[in-house]
Nucleic acid binder design. Sequence first.
DNA 1: AATTAAGCCAACCGCCCTCAT
DNA 2: AATGAGGGCGGTTGGCTTAAT
Length: 320
Amino acid sequence: MGRSPCCDESGLKKGPWTPEEDQKLINHIRKHGHGSWRALPKQAGLNRCGKSCRLRWTNYLRPDIKRGNFTAEEEQTIINLHSLLGNKWSSIAGHLPGRTDNEIKNYWNTHIRKKLIQMGIDPVTHRPRNDHLNVLAALPQLLAAANFNNLLTLNQNIQVDAASIAKAQLLHSMIQVLNTSSSFDSHPTSNNLYGQSSFLENQPNINEDFYDPTQSLSHINDHQPLDSFSSPIRVASHQDDQSSIPPLISVSPDESKQTQMMIKNKEIMKHNDHTSNPSSTSTFTQDHQPWCDIIDDETSDSYWKEIIEQTCSEPWPFRE
DNA sequence: AATTAAGCCAACCGCCCTCAT
DNA sequence: AATGAGGGCGGTTGGCTTAAT
């Protein structure tokens, strides 16, 4: 390694930037570009380390920074990309024009992560969480799935008993919670909602598809896990071939690598595109649809929207 | 009105990678 | 091959703001 951090130099200012410092940095970069970041502070008359200047510029002062709330589309893109790339914030930021890796990282940690946890989704694996305490958090999901039975009567063409399975699982889980609540700590991985003894354990499509990362979270009230509605339907649509349904998200390292390779290839192609056609504005959301391919036309957004709206008009056991 | 807790986010820290010598 | 400079990246911190008591 053999290099001391650039900020070790004594006497350099740290902490929040003043408007004057910002202006100096902007003026210098407008006139000369950033060049060597290490040399920049002296040239610009700033008592900061180069690294601090670079961060300030890339995360805040850059003219193409988009500020303000994230849109539903951006949020969805972040979730999709995170399920593929993990905490590769800079890669994710590369697909969100005007957003910085730092901003996306903060938004993930303060908003999206919490939403996923509240829905019983592990924000790292994007799969249903396996811990016992999650049973309680997942109850609304199960009840939502059970409530989905009403939908089935509205959509006669869907031939599946997923709602019945969910109801059975709900009762099963509640009984287990009552029976095992005193030994949660000692048996952290058994008798839980998605664990070994779960009735749904042998219904992988229901377990694994409970969360659909292609659905945006932004419209979801914290206590209304609408995503849970979509899963049983999708199970139904693939009922004929349950064993061969690909997971919505890559789980194994190999799968993850394959997906990342696909993205890299896409990026290379996109880069070539941009090179030959600078006006191109394609983004991941527009030309990467890794999950949509397995959803047939009947399961389009409008189709789900209609179903969700119908469901929301039904009495909701947890609505406040 | 005062205090405490929780949420948020800009900025920092330190490790890692690439490239030049 | 070894070393160091420069920069990128993800994780973490600390201070400010807002909400709750």
